[in-house]
């Protein structure tokens, strides 16, 4: 009997087909407050761009762009900062934020007392994280435009690509959160994220590293995000660009599958 129901409705235990309500709640909260939090997430990459791009850029001068042409240092790091900010936002939302709402605000506990299932909560929260990422990406593009760093119409694709990067990191991040039991363990996430930002050819070209380290960096997701953004910023598209995009498509598919398989462990504990 139980086996029959399981076969007939594989998602009946986890999905109430109402992720929309979780999204409604997210927008209601955004409308009423949280502007300080929203705005701080926008300014972080902008500050990096001003300090590094203009400040440090004055010392560095021009560097070689993806198509072999010289570009300003600010134009070199701006796409990398956008990729990093998409990563950081997605990781923050899918680890700290999920963990806090799960353990301390008990928001998800309340949601799961209703006819929502873990899948509704996960989908709704990922959507809200992407919406936030979308706002940041648009804001950052405007800054790049004002600073004269956008030179190709392809650059408009940097916005959807920022979302793709965010889906990849958020889906994996949520699955990782299902294994975490304390805030101390969250620090481990930071230990992975910071070096990834510093060494993924974000602030300097990858060829400063010895070959072995280059391979390692090229295996990391952020490097692909950075290269993808850089190609789009100047409109230099080739097979490698498609490869970087494919990396994130595969990462997102695996991440969503991984998170879906961990929903019970994440929410029903």
């Amino acid at each position: 009997m139980a086996e029959v129901t399981r076969g007939a409705e594989p998602f009946a235990a986890l999905y109430g087909r109402n992720a929309r309500a979780v999204i409604e709640r997210g927008f209601k909260v955004i409308r009423h407050q949280n502007w300080a939090v929203m705005v701080s997430g926008f300014f972080e990459p902008v500050f990096y761009l001003l300090a590094m791009g203009l400040g440090l850029g004055g010392l560095v001068g021009d560097v070689t762009g993806p198509d072999g042409q010289p570009i300003s240092y600010a134009a070199f790091i701006a796409p990398a900062l956008l990729a990093t900010s998409a990563m950081n936002g997605a990781i923050y939302d899918s680890t700290w934020n999920v963990f806090f709402k799960l353990r301390f605000a008990r928001l998800y506990q309340a949601m799961l007392q209703t006819s929502l299932g873990p899948m509704d909560v996960a989908l709704g929260e990922i959507f809200m994280a992407l919406f936030r990422g979308f706002l940041y990406a648009v804001g950052f593009m405007v800054v790049m435009l004002v600073m004269g760093l956008v030179v190709s119409p392809w650059a408009v694709l940097m916005i959807p690509v920022a979302l793709l990067i965010a889906v990849g990191f958020a889906s994996v991040g949520m699955a990782v959160t299902s294994y975490l039991k304390s805030f101390q363990q969250m620090d481990v996430v930071q230990v992975v994220m910071l070096p990834m930002f510093l060494f993924s050819a974000t602030l300097f070209p990858i060829d400063v590293f010895p070959t072995a380290i280059q391979w390692f960096v090229q295996a990391m997701p952020l490097w692909h995000g950075v290269e993808l953004m850089r190609d789009l910023a100047v409109g230099h598209l080739d097979v490698a660009t498609a490869g970087h995009a494919l990396y994130f498509v595969v990462m997102s598919v695996l991440g969503v599958w991984f998170t879906a398989s961990r929903l019970r462990a994440l929410f029903l504990r």
């Binding site: 235990a13 999905y15 299932g117």
Partner: peptide, 16 residues
Amino acid sequence: PAERGPEVRAHLGVVP
């Protein structure tokens, strides 16, 4: 409830 959580909870009121 383990198989049909959302449907079961539609009939429940929960005060934790």
